[in-house]
Structure formats: C-alpha cells, structure tokens
C-alpha cells in the first residue's frame, strides 16, 4: 500500500514537469529580459523603431510591425484556404478522398520550416520580384509561405470542431428542405464557430512564432514596411539573426524581444483556450 502511494506521488511529480518547465522558461525569459525594459523604458523599447545594437539603440517597433504585417498577410491568404479545405473535408468530400487528403495535410505539417523557407526563396521571391517589383524577399513572400505553413494547424483544429457538431443538426436542417451548403452555412458553421475561431487563433500563434522560414524569405530589414513588397524583420527573426553573437545589453534586448513574443503567444493561447472551453460548455 505504501509502495503504491509512493508510486502515485512519483507520477504526480512527473505530471508537474510540464508546468514546472513552463514556469522555468517563463521565469528565465522574464528574468533575463526585464533588464532592458528597466534600462530603456517600456515605451521606448516597444515603440521606438530604431534598432541599432552597436549604438545601444534598442527599439522593437519595426519588428512588431513586421510580425503584425506578415501575420495578417498569412491569415488573409491562409484562413480562407484552410477553412475551405476543412469544410470540404468535413461536409462535401467523398470519404475515400478524405482518407487520402488527411495524411497529405499531415505531411504538409511535417515538412521542416527551412524547406518552406527555401521554396519561398527559390520560387516565390523571384516571381514577386519579376512580376510585382521590389526585392522579392518581402512581406508578401513571408505571408505566402506562412499561409501554407499554418494550413495544417487551422485545418486540423477546425476540422475537429466541424466533426464535433452532432450529425442530427445537419439532418434536421436537410429535412427542412435546406440545401447542403445552406445547412452547412447556417447550422454547422455557427455550431462549430468557437472551435473555428480557436483554430484561426492557434494558426495565428504559429505564424507569429515561425522563425526560420520567415528569416529566409522576408528580407529582414529593420524598418516599418509601407507596402507588402518591402522587406521586413519579425520579432522571431530578430532573435534568431542576432542571438549567435549578442552579449550584455544586446542579449538582454533579445530576451526582451522573447518576452514580447512570449506575451503575444500566451494571449493567443489563452484566447484559443477560452474559445475551446466555451464550445465544451455548450
């Protein structure tokens, strides 16, 4: 009996590891990053567009705007595409085709981000440069690559939400004479709404957090973009590009960048969590 209690305690400790590690990372990032906020001032660090580590200028605004632009772009392209696919898979697709499509989409999720970045560099960027102008490596290229990269996330989560809608809803609506699309549009999608929103939020989280692909395709220039054809640097790229050689205050500033990123992701995750919980309660 005593031995069983001991085993249970051990399992409990193991189960706390995820929480412990989360806390460790959070505390560590904040401890290392808080200095820069204190030295430079919160407002200046966040809202100054000037980032010149050699001159001790640390302002994140260009990078924040970079992340915002690229993420919004990725959502504009990726969300309609993903939701169409998941609605198609859930409601219109013959079962046989769905059985082939799902693993294909999972494979899309498994392709390393460097490969996406590479494709962006060798295929997308030249096309953009040639047909739309600018340097090619740009907000647009970044958004397009990210749009593809968030597809699997958004598709799989929204698909779960659509599948969770009871079959009777659809049958009831069809019985009332609605067409399939009308039923899906008026009954299924509203019923799965919170799950779909959660899928978009989590896709957004992935887009904000993606690093390597973005570094490769978006040009990394530190300035606030004025058009989608200009190069930008995101928060994630900022860390990855400079972490290798940063020391002292510079490294603190990168941890500060990590803090900002961390807070954004936590807000998104919590929002998604709230939306999925709401679905459960209903």
């Amino acid at each position: 009996m005593n031995r069983e209690k001991l085993i249970e305690k051990t399992f409990f400790l193991i189960a706390c590891s995820a929480l412990f590690l989360l806390a460790l990372i959070t505390v560590f990032i904040f401890k290392e990053g808080i200095g820069i906020f204190l030295k430079i001032g919160f407002a200046k660090f966040i809202f100054s567009p000037d980032w010149a580590p050699s001159q001790k200028q640390f302002g994140l605004f260009s990078m924040i705007m970079g992340s915002v632009w690229i993420t919004i772009g990725a959502l504009i392209i990726g969300v309609p595409l993903s939701l169409s696919v998941s609605i198609f898979l859930a409601e219109f697709c013959p079962k046989k085709i769905a059985r082939i499509l799902k693993p294909a989409i999972e494979l899309l999720a498994g392709i390393p981000s460097v490969v996406y970045g590479f494709i962006g560099v060798v295929i997308l960027a030249p096309l953009i440069r040639e047909y739309l102008g600018g340097p090619g490596l740009s907000v647009l290229a970044g958004s397009m690559v990210l749009a593809i990269m968030i597809l699997p996330t958004v598709i799989s989560i929204s698909l779960d939400a659509l599948h969770a809608v009871p079959k009777s809803y659809l049958e009831g609506s069809l019985a009332l004479g609605a067409t399939r699309w009308q039923s899906v549009y008026m009954v299924i999608i509203p019923a799965a709404r919170s799950g779909i929103i959660a899928s978009v939020i989590l896709g957004m989280g992935r887009a904000v957090g993606e690093t390597m692909a973005v570094i490769m395709v978006s040009g990394n220039a530190v300035r606030i973009p004025h058009s989608i054809l200009e190069p930008v640097r995101t928060l994630t790229s900022n860390i990855a590009l400079e972490l290798g050689y940063a020391t002292g205050m510079h490294r603190e500033a990168l941890f500060g960048t990590g803090m900002v990123l961390f807070v954004i992701i936590m807000i998104l995750n919590t929002a998604a969590y709230v939306f999925t919980k709401r679905k459960v309660r209903k």
Binding site: A18, I29, V208, T236, L254, G258, L261, I265, N269, Y273
Partner: peptide, 24 residues
Amino acid sequence: MIRFGADCLAGIPSIVFGLFGFVL
C-alpha cells in the same frame, strides 16, 4: 492546470526554446 501548461508549452515558438536553451 497541467493540461493548460502543456498547451502553453506547445504554443511557445521554437526560437524562444532556442533562446532559453542557448542561454541556460
């Protein structure tokens, strides 16, 4: 809480893990 913690961990961008792992 444990599940929420795991979900949060899942959402953290890999570069933040890189930052953390590199310095720690």
